[in-house]
Every structure is written in C-alpha cells, then in structure tokens.
Design a protein around this nucleic acid. Structure first.
Lengths: 171, 171
DNA sequence: ACTGAAAACCAAGATTT
DNA sequence: AAATCTTGGTTTTCAGT
C-alpha cells in the first residue's frame, strides 16, 4: 500500500538527488530550519511541514544529533542576567596561547575564546555589566595571566546574527 | 492564573540595576543548565533534577521563553555542511558601518556581524570551505561592498566555548 | 493533583536504491 | 544488501481544570 497523505508541503520538494555522501540533504536542512525556530517543536508538526512521517523526522533528528551535525540547546542572553556590555578582546601572548585560552574560558565573563592566526593570538568574547567592570576584568584578571602580553578591546555597539541555517557551499 | 508584569528593557541604560525584578533565581538557573545540556529534555526529568514538579518546570520555562531570557533552538555547526575553515574578519568602513553590516549578514558565509568601537568598525564571523574560498569571499564579496575600506583576517585555529550558563555578575 | 489528549518511542514490515 | 520511510501498538509527556 502506498500513502497518499502527503500532498501539500509548501516547503521542500524532495526531488531526486544522485548525491552519494551528502552530509545533510534538502529535507534534513528543512528539518533543521524548523528546529531553529523552535527547538522543542513536536516531531509531528515538523513532519507535516517537510512532508515526512513523525517517526522519520525523529530518526533523522536523532541521527543529526548523533553525528554532531546539530545540537538542540537553550541559548541564554547574557543581558538577561545583567551583563549588558559586550566586547571582543584581542590578546597577544608570549609562548603557547592554548593554556591562556583555557584560563580565559574559565572566567565568568568570558563566552568564548578562539586561538587565531594573525596580529592577535586570541580573540575572547566577553560580557560585563559596565565599563568599570570591563576595566577591572582586563587589568586584574586578563593581563595578570602568565603569558599575556597585551589586550585590545572592541566594545560591541550592535550585532546582526545570520538568519537561517548554514548551507552547503556553492560549487 | 496571574501574570506578573515583566520589566521591558526597551532602551536599556547603563547603571540601571536589575535587582528589583529578579531575572532568574537559582532554580531557574538550574533549569536552564539542564536545557543547555539537552534542549529537548522532558520537563519531568528536569523537575526531578531541580526538585520541582513537572508542571512548575513547564511554567517556568514558558515564562523564560516569553520574557526572551532564553531561546531553545538547534544550533548548527558549519563544519557539518563542509564549511571547515572559520575566521574572524576585522573590517574598517568609510561612513556608516550599519548598512555594511546588514549587507554582510546576508552573505551565506557570514555567521554574525558586530559593529564595534575600536580600530575595526566591524567584526564578522565567517565560515568557508578552504583558503581559496576565503580569498574569493574577501576579494569579490566583501571588499567590493560600498564603503568597505580594508579587511584583516584572523583564521581560527581552535576554540573554547564557555562551559555553563551566564551567571549574574559578582559584586 | 488528576485527566483527557498529544507526543514520543519501539519494533517490524514495506519500499526504494 | 543497506538504508530509509511507514504503520500500528504502547508508554510517556503535556496542558487545562
């Protein structure tokens, strides 16, 4: 028996793809899009939107999670806890930058640290209450770390996040 | 049911203490922690972990979502779709940086753009397949935008994210 | 806290590549 | 043969009283 239930899916037409080892095909991409709007959206609702059964959606999501392609999680806004001022801090280091990065990541005000190739050895995203807090953080916590040579701050004035999901690169 | 008025932060100004309306107490913080590990964790499981009934957890989560304190969503790793190389690009602009930021945010390779005060006017997080792609992006897409004066790239060699949730600032 | 309704889960079976 | 979607039955979770 064949199903005739799936008729109207505004979103994705699955199409025949001769793609062998794609990481995420069009349907999975559509599923991720749904989960980006609401990470707790019921599988059945997602299935209806992308033209799949509930179980199929669940299987795909599980697979995406297992292979680490996506993560479903609560994201918190630091402003929600009074950390209103954000900044990126460029840091130069003497010697190995990795232990410094690890030490930075422990600080309560630090959201992420990247080791980079370029004029800065590290870029740290931080969130503080105000300028005084920023100053205190830099002088007493960051510059005192062994190996830190200099810091340069870029205070955030505004931000724009990307709209949708990451898409496979154009050939 | 009675809904409590939540202070809107339209125009948040520095110096304002958010002490009056507690944004998230210890229990909600614990709930968020749970949802950070797994955004789809059942309310009952969360309740068991934090010592609350399932319904209470549900109400709190709903409130946190309504307030915009948290967002539950799928986060995608650009590497999952073949964008293996990441970088932060510092950009200087002639004139208003905001329209440039908006144009950048439209590009498929751009994850986020921040307007900053400092030597760079903009900082863009980007993800590309390889160095050639990076070069093409910078020369053909970014530097051609009206107003862009210069770019400087910081290729990511490693990254450390913060472990837990954002916590209220220490005194 | 209780209850009907919805959603998630599981194990085969069917289908397509 | 392998992978993927569907189906039907069961358990768990959800949302409103």
């Amino acid at each position: 028996m064949h199903s005739e239930a799936v008729a109207e899916n505004d979103g994705v037409r699955a199409g025949k793809r001769t793609n062998g080892g794609a990481v995420a095909d069009a349907v999975s991409l559509a599923i991720i899009e749904q989960l980006q709007e609401d990470g707790r959206r019921p599988y059945a609702a997602i299935g209806k939107a992308v033209g799949l059964s509930e179980a199929a959606v669940r299987q795909r999501v599980q697979k995406l999670l297992d292979q680490g392609a996506i993560r479903i999680a609560a994201v918190t806004d630091p402003r929600g806890v009074g950390l209103l001022r954000q900044a990126t801090v460029g840091i130069t280091v003497e010697g190995d930058p990795v232990p410094v990065a690890e030490a930075l990541a422990e600080l309560a005000e630090v959201g992420s640290v990247v080791v980079t190739a370029g004029p800065f050895d590290l870029l740290a995203e931080i969130a503080v209450t105000d300028d005084e807090h920023l100053l205190r953080l830099l002088t007493q916590r960051v510059r005192t770390l062994p190996g830190v040579r200099s810091t340069e701050s870029f205070v955030h004035l505004g931000r724009r996040e990307r709209a949708g999901v990451w898409r496979p690169p154009p050939p």
